[in-house]
Design a protein around this nucleic acid. Structure first.
Lengths: 112, 112
DNA sequence: TGCTTATTTGGCAATTTAGCCAAACATGGG
DNA sequence: CCCATGTTTGGCTAAATTGCCAAATAAGCA
């Protein structure tokens, strides 16, 4: 693979990697509804605030979310709502997987 | 976060994680064009065949690709083409990021 | 200035991931 | 059966990721 093409794929992988975490998926969906500060998200997720803060910085570095300072709070918002379309496709993958696992199960029952 | 909801997010994150690698992104796009065997993909990517084989098994376990045995070769194919729509969104994120970096640059020049 | 609230950063241990090599496994042909 | 071809698996090391705690930073207010 040519280095130039490889860079392209690496850049895309970096962004996808930023999405690929349960808490970060939750944050993305939550921020689609409304902007939120670190403490609110921390309460919802239930891990340490420093952990949530780091997740937010991962998403921010990837360019997926932005932030806005108000007083002592920092509100985060979703910059690219198209991310959510993509999440729909992930649901499709999961549905197909479930269906196929079901088929295998049926087959086993028929044989047994 | 409730354990049940957490499982949902973990399941989705697992699938996205499977996509989040340069070589695996390449494989997905290549398989959309036509099905391919391990050796063909190995030649295109340029890493060890065992490495490519492992990438393929990651994608297969995630339910994104399937395989078909023919003689001594195993051909892999894309099971869920909707994955590609999602990749379009990643492009959008990258474009926005580039644009904003450009704006910052312009601002610096204006000030300097 | 000192206090409180909100958030980030540094550091550390545990876990996961990546990629190479060598060895094992499968399949078709002589 | 033995060999060649195509693929996967095991083992290993290096690197990245995660999450917690404690400490540092920032901003508003008495």
């Amino acid at each position: 693979m040519k280095p130039e093409l490889k860079n392209q794929y690496e850049a895309r992988a970096r962004i996808i990697k930023a999405i690929a975490h349960p808490s970060r998926l939750f944050i993305i969906e939550e921020l689609e509804k409304k902007e939120r500060c670190v403490q609110e998200l921390t309460d919802m997720i239930g891990s340490d605030m420093s952990t949530v803060s780091k997740h937010l910085s991962v998403l921010k570095n990837a360019g997926i979310i932005g932030d806005r300072k108000t007083g002592t709070s920092i509100f985060y918002y979703l910059k690219t709502p198209c991310i959510l379309n993509f999440l729909g496709c992930i649901e499709d993958v999961m549905t197909i997987n479930l269906k196929q696992q079901g088929d295998v199960l049926k087959l086993c029952r028929r044989k047994g």
